[in-house]
């Protein structure tokens, strides 16, 4: 199998490390060779962050480059636009529509671009966009945006529901499992 590439993008502190951990574990359980590359340190302080997940028969590079991503999983719509060039021509985006102003926008040095979802659609890109923050709140915690996104992503994978649930259970603390299961289901079953 040719190596498949996923990038998970967002704002430092939004929970991308847990999302990549669950994905990596899931794919390893499916028998793939897997590599996950993360960013720690200063960028985590509210900066733009990207995590790479690659799987296949034999994976060499731990990073995904421009034009290589089969999937972009995004926690924030400006970040979706920032990393858009990483998507393959026929790639799929799964994104939260939440907007978080970066500091240059807060200080007035820059403006937040409008209508990003429609602009990305107009560029001929497959984008599945939803308000994951509201769904996460519905599940019980605004922090569950990452699991809502994974639930949505599961649509595009031919991996059984049981396997996803198993990876979820193995990587979230037991006391938050029910909440996360609910978040996963809300993301998966969302009717856009």
């Amino acid at each position: 199998m040719e190596t498949k590439n996923i990038i998970i993008v967002g704002v430092g502190g939004q929970g991308s490390l847990l999302a990549s951990k669950i994905l990596g574990d899931l794919l390893l359980r499916q028998g793939y060779d897997v590599k996950v590359s993360e960013v720690h340190g200063m960028s985590q302080r509210g900066g733009s962050v990207i995590t790479y997940v690659r799987f296949g028969d034999r994976v060499y590079s731990p990073v995904v480059d421009e034009g290589e991503a089969d999937y972009i999983v995004s926690f924030e719509i400006l970040e979706t636009a920032r990393w858009l060039s990483y998507l393959k021509p026929d790639g799929q985006i799964v994104t939260n529509t939440q907007q978080i102003d970066p500091m240059p926008v807060i200080t007035g040095a820059a403006t937040y671009p409008e209508d990003l979802v429609s602009k990305i659609k107009a560029a001929g890109v497959k984008i599945d966009a939803m308000d994951c923050l509201s769904l996460a709140r519905e599940a019980g915690s605004p922090k569950a945006v990452n699991i809502v996104l994974l639930g949505r992503l599961s649509h595009y994978f031919s991996i059984s529901e049981e396997a996803w649930q198993e990876a979820l259970a193995a990587n979230v603390p037991p006391k938050f499992l029910e909440l996360n299961k609910k978040a996963f289901a809300l993301g998966k079953d969302f009717q856009g």
């Binding site: 200063m42 034009g67 858009l84 500091m103 926008v105 040095a109 820059a110 671009p113």
Partner: peptide, 20 residues
């Protein structure tokens, strides 16, 4: 040769790390 991806015409403001 490498694959080029899609880009929007909008200027994307940078998102530097900030104090929490």
């Amino acid at each position: 040769e490498t694959q080029e991806g899609t880009k929007l015409s909008d200027a994307i403001p940078p998102r530097p790390p900030v104090m929490c």
